[in-house]
């Protein structure tokens, strides 16, 4: 009885997940009449706008990851080491981007950093790019911080620090050469989530008028039939690859730990 119900629930769930994926894949192959082809993909990949926006988003994702690591790792480390009392506060703040919709945050950016403000970031292209990167870093903050903090929990931060200090290491050396390598797996999982978020992000890039991959997809979706499906397949592959890589590095780290 229960088991039959369980199979039905599972089948329904799988169907729900599988149908749209099959649908978009099938649709993306139908560009040439009456026969399956990769025409839609060829068309998308050959589009200079695709190459531009895709490259832009990859670049932004990498910058966001670099900035996020620089911001989050020292902070999480410092909170664990010296400011355990600040933890509830920091954790609460890092969860706020899940509560405040991205569209509200970017709305605030546009108001706060306009050309007549104290920090006129939106006045130049570089400034806007910087602002967008900060926005991406904000969006990925909950995931990045939680990943790094979980990673720090598994190592004895205080002892490692004291050991490094007794050997004469300064703070930069401790964080870069002692703490970071030990939480590398956690940092990588945070980085892959960040990558997936930035590659698919639409709202912030669109409202800041930057030529990112998200707005490009939306634009293409409004004007073409088959290419959007091909784009969806590509985007899904990116998400899947990021999540797969997280699993991979986590599993890999478990093996090395067990071997020790």
């Amino acid at each position: 009885m229960t088991r039959i119900g369980a199979w039905i629930a599972l089948a329904f769930g799988l169907g729900y997940f599988a149908l749209p994926l099959i649908g978009m894949t099938e649709f993306s192959l139908k560009m040439r009449r009456g026969v399956y082809s990769f025409d839609a993909y060829a068309k998308v990949l050959a589009d200079p706008r695709f190459q531009e926006t895709f490259g832009y988003s990859v670049f932004m994702a990498l910058m966001t990851i670099a900035f996020g690591v620089l911001l989050v790792v020292p902070t999480a480390y410092w909170v664990r080491l010296k400011l355990p009392r600040a933890r509830p506060f920091v954790e609460f703040v890092t969860l706020l981007p899940l509560v405040i919709p991205a569209i509200v945050i970017v709305f605030g950016y546009i108001r706060m950093f306009n050309t007549s403000s104290f920090l006129p970031l939106t006045g130049t292209a570089t400034g806007t790019n910087l602002l967008l990167m900060f926005g991406y870093a904000t969006l990925s903050l909950p995931y990045m911080y939680r990943a790094v903090d979980t990673g720090l929990r598994t190592i004895d931060v205080a002892t490692l620090t004291e050991a490094a200090q007794s050997l004469g290491a300064g703070w930069t050396v401790i964080i870069a050469r002692v703490i970071l390598p030990n939480v590398l797996v956690a940092v990588l999982s945070g980085a892959f989530v960040t990558f997936a978020i930035v590659m698919g992000e639409f709202t912030m890039a669109a409202l800041l008028n930057r030529p990112a991959f998200g707005p490009y997809m939306q634009l293409l979706g409004a004007n073409r039939a088959y290419e959007p499906a091909a784009l969806a397949v590509i985007a899904f592959a990116i998400t899947w690859a990021c999540m797969g890589l997280i699993q991979l590095v986590t599993r890999f780290s478990k093996h090395t730990k067990a071997a020790r």
Binding site: F17, L19, P20, L21, I22, G23, M24, E26, F27, S28, V193, A196, I197, G200, E201, F202, G214, M217, Q218, G221, P228, A229, L231, A232, A235, F236, T239, W240, C242, M243, I246
Partner: peptide
Amino acid sequence: GVASNFAGVPLAFAFLAT
């Protein structure tokens, strides 16, 4: 984990195609 992160524009395309 993958599906909960698969949102935004491409998700809309997937459902349009379905």
